[in-house]
Design a protein around this nucleic acid. Structure first.
Lengths: 298, 298
DNA sequence: TCGAATACCTGACTAAAGTCAGGGACATGA
DNA sequence: TCATGTCCCTGACTTTAGTCAGGTATTCGA
């Protein structure tokens, strides 16, 4: 990789952590231990499950527990079992009290004030330019935070993606989408060695998926490539696709193919630009209008 | 201020502190206390004075001293009086040992690796875009970090600015610049109530200056507006100028004027766009070709 | 030359962060 | 229904960070 690029990133990191990182903490703290302030902020006005907080803040279970006790002691937070009905009785939920909500609002205000303090010394034009550049950085940084990894297709987050995929295409296809009419995909075909299911996550939230079926004595078949709106246009689909191809190639397949609906125009464009070429139908999928194929380098 | 702008800044802060802030620390630490790692990094391959380190890292004198002892104990650093000859005998300097330099190189390598890990998931085009946007953010953030404050003209940093100013104009004027031939400016004219000297600093390093003399029974006179190359084009000159005008206006002056050299074209453009209009010569300054005046709102 | 100021240091703290071993309540699947 | 695992908790730590009051050597200015 070009060392000028990495040097630019390093300069950015340095300036930004100085300006944004350090000061942000100060604005947050308000005479309270920083960890407590962060926790209070993270609980937010609608509350949050203790486990989720642990994951988001990356805290040790004991440490988090003690922080919650401290906030409870200050009357800012109450911790209670999640919804009396139904839910898992082990899981607990932290909710802000009225005082806690007031404190949270104060933090919110300070966060705004901090943002203003960054913009304030600039002229209106420079403000616009800064905000535009920040949005660009944020968006691309987000793209680079997306992680793609193998995942069992039965996983909760995998299921959520597949459901989102079905909802999406149902909305977009001319004649809706009834999974029962489409050729079925079975979980067992998407676990090695029969296939692979990939999950794309952003801060461990699912934001995309894709799968490949490694048919015996036939080209590998790519299925269910889906990307959430929030990260569309950031190259995540392309990355999933090339990961799937890599898996197929590593396991010895020399060709992959896939079918798709005429309404999925960006997907079709992506397949073409990724080196796929259109072929004759190789199946009778109810919702397919185009069939593509790509040869893989060994 | 527009709340859309502040909201964008807040989103940026959040994403960036998550991605850059937190991970940067991890990459730095290498199983060592973070403060030690940062200090080691800040000392750098050429060493640094203890006082400078204290200022840059914002550490308590006791704390820093202990951190230095710890690094010394690990054989990474030696602390010694600055240059045997001449220098201030109280000042000490921290220098990396061979082991320390090796460790520093390791941190440098990790910093690079971290930068690569940000760019790596992106396509070449997105990398270019990210780096360009980062450079823009960095530059404008830098602009917003510049602080402008009153400063005695005898201050070390003020002197440094005035020297830099003289060097600059000597290089740019057609016939060089000999301070002895220019109308002199005395320190005592630049301290209240006779006048004001302003210093612009970036991370407490001087990056610009400007002064105003409040002549009795005559318009106030602006002198020595200078901005370092590193922050030119960021609106610092304009900010200094309007601060100087504010000071004059607050003390009751209704007019400011100034003279300038024909070679300082950006400065002339700035004066015009800031509302100055050209007038007849009001002095016999050896190096002046243009004279400007501006009326101040009370 | 002598007092005040400066640069760095040590000792003696407190506060906060982080770690680890277990324990009780609940959930789950054989 | 019973072993096993999960979720959150407490207790008992260690490690870092950060503060404050002196103390020593040196420099600077009256």
């Amino acid at each position: 990789m070009n060392s000028e690029l990495t040097a630019a990133v390093r300069r950015f990191n340095r300036t930004v952590t100085q300006r944004v990182g350090a000061l942000d903490d100060e604005y947050m703290a308000r005479g309270r231990p920083l960890a407590q302030a962060r926790l209070l902020w993270e609980i937010g006005p609608y509350g949050a499950e203790v486990g989720a907080l642990r994951a988001r803040l990356g805290l040790d279970s004991g440490h988090l527990s003690r922080l919650l006790r401290a906030l409870e002691g200050d009357g800012l937070v109450t911790v209670r079992p999640t919804g009396p009905a139904g839910g898992d009785g082990r899981v607990r939920e932290a909710v802000l009290t009225d005082a806690g909500r007031a404190e949270w609002a104060e933090l919110d205000e300070r966060s705004d004030e901090f943002a203003r303090s960054i913009l304030e010394p600039l002229t209106a034009r420079r403000r616009e330019r800064l905000v535009a550049a920040m949005a660009e950085v944020e968006r691309l940084l987000m793209a680079s935070m997306v992680e793609i990894e193998k995942c069992p297709p039965g996983d909760r987050r995998a299921r959520a993606c597949v459901r989102a995929y079905a909802r999406d295409v149902a909305r977009r296809f001319d004649d809706g989408f009834d999974p029962a009419l489409s050729s079925p995909v079975h979980d067992e075909d998407l676990v090695p060695p029969a296939g692979v299911f990939l999950l794309a996550t952003l801060r461990s939230e699912p934001v995309g998926c894709g799968a490949v079926k490694l048919h015996r004595d036939a080209p590998a078949e790519i299925k269910r490539v889906w990307v959430a709106d929030t990260v569309r246009g950031l190259g995540v689909g392309r990355r999933i696709l090339s990961e799937l191809e890599r898996h197929a190639a590593e396991r010895g397949w020399r060709t992959v193919r896939l079918d798709t609906n005429r309404r999925l125009t960006e997907a079709i464009a992506m397949y073409r630009s990724a080196g796929y070429r259109e072929i004759e139908p190789y199946n009778t999928e109810r919702y397919a209008h185009h069939w593509f194929e790509k040869h893989l380098a060994p």
